[in-house]
């Protein structure tokens, strides 16, 4: 029996249209390829704010701004530079249903879902394997920070919705705009974008956890680093591969900006305790896996500054009456220390 009540989309998903008029030759398309203008150790800017969803016990919104805004406005929505926008909502802690078996710890259930429009390749409404995988990774990252013993027989639902996901590569490669040389022309794939999504999800979920007031040992920040091969340096990099690695190690790689991503690592890092709760390395790292992980930790430490700032803002807003102009200047000092306490004691 077919579902006649809803207007169902085509089963395979759809692409935003790319019209032939806008598609010139590959050579004409090529200048549009974004390049990394950041330093290798420079992260994209992060916007993070909590208390987005009033009905949830905790929520946060995280956004990575595109590193290289296009010089000219894109001719189609399909050409938008890759960026990351995601929300995390936390419901609970709530009592587990009667049917659930007894658990002495907080039962953490994580859900990560890409919005259908999040990436160029549209996603279905059912969670696919990649999304379930990311959710499992996220759960691992959070499980290490939550003090679960304080909530026996209760559960927390962490729901991450990816509104705009990192692409796995430059869209031009997908439509044949890339060149045959180097790593181009392969088409998009490899799931490199998922790494950035996971890192963002970890950071965002951590902020939402703090917003929900769930006891944690520390704030966990996500960081990602990757080994990339730049177009110009391809041969050189390969030549050097025996010595120092296969390519350049960059923090926060944006797959669309690189010709090829060889490997990437995501960590969930507790800076306060120098612990890693989640580690995911993918690709051909060679012998230098440790370097890559170090870099990912570096990225996590950087993103932590934003996380701390967001949590402090949230705490200030929560525990201090919103100050009228400068009236509460005196109390702000106290607030600062109180917030620091909140963050540090965790």
């Amino acid at each position: 029996m077919t579902d006649r009540r809803r207007i169902n989309p085509p089963p395979g998903g759809t692409h935003p249209p790319i019209f032939a008029s806008t598609l010139s030759t590959p050579s004409a398309l090529r200048p549009q390829r974004p390049t990394r203008t950041r330093q290798p150790s420079e992260l994209r800017k992060i916007f993070l704010q909590t208390s987005l969803v009033p009905s949830a016990s905790g929520s946060a919104y995280l956004e990575l701004s595109p590193s290289s805004p296009p010089s000219a406005p894109p001719s189609s929505a399909a050409y938008n530079p890759s960026a990351l926008k995601l929300t995390c909502t936390i419901h609970g802690p709530h009592p587990l249903p009667r049917s659930a078996p007894y658990t002495p710890h907080l039962h953490l259930s994580t859900t990560l879902k890409f919005a259908p429009f999040a990436t160029r390749q549209r996603r279905g409404y059912i969670r696919d394997a990649a999304e379930r995988d990311l959710a499992a990774h996220l759960e691992t990252a959070l499980r290490g920070v939550v003090i679960g013993e304080r909530w026996p027989k209760s559960g927390v639902d962490v729901v991450v919705t990816v509104l705009e996901g990192e692409e796995d590569g430059w869209w031009g490669d997908d439509v044949g705009g890339g060149e045959g040389a180097g790593g181009g022309g392969k088409g998009i794939g490899g799931g490199w974008g998922l790494m950035s999504v996971l890192a963002g999800a970890i950071t965002c979920a951590s902020a939402a956890m703090a917003d929900a007031g769930i006891d944690c040992v520390d704030l966990v920040a996500g960081g990602v680093a990757g080994v990339v091969v730049e177009a110009g340096r391809t041969t050189k990099g390969k030549g050097k591969s025996g010595e120092a690695g296969l390519g350049t190690v960059v923090l926060d790689p944006c797959p669309a900006e690189h010709e090829e991503v060889r490997a990437a690592a995501v960590v969930g890092y507790l800076a306060g305790r120098d612990e890693i709760t989640e580690l995911w390395v993918k690709g051909d790292v060679g012998a230098d896996a440790e370097i890559l992980i170090e870099k990912a930790v570096e990225a996590a430490v950087s993103s932590r500054t934003v996380l701390v700032e967001a949590v402090r803002e949230a705490a200030q807003a929560k525990f201090i009456q919103p100050a009228e102009n400068g009236a509460a200047v005196g109390s702000k000092k106290g607030a600062g220390s109180a917030t620091a306490d909140v963050v540090m004691s965790g």
Binding site: R38, F47, L48
Partner: peptide, 16 residues
């Protein structure tokens, strides 16, 4: 090189 940290906190985009 350049200091990434002071700048890492972004202004919200229009969407945000």
């Amino acid at each position: 090189k350049l200091e990434p940290l002071p700048d890492i906190k972004a202004e919200p985009s229009t969407f945000a």
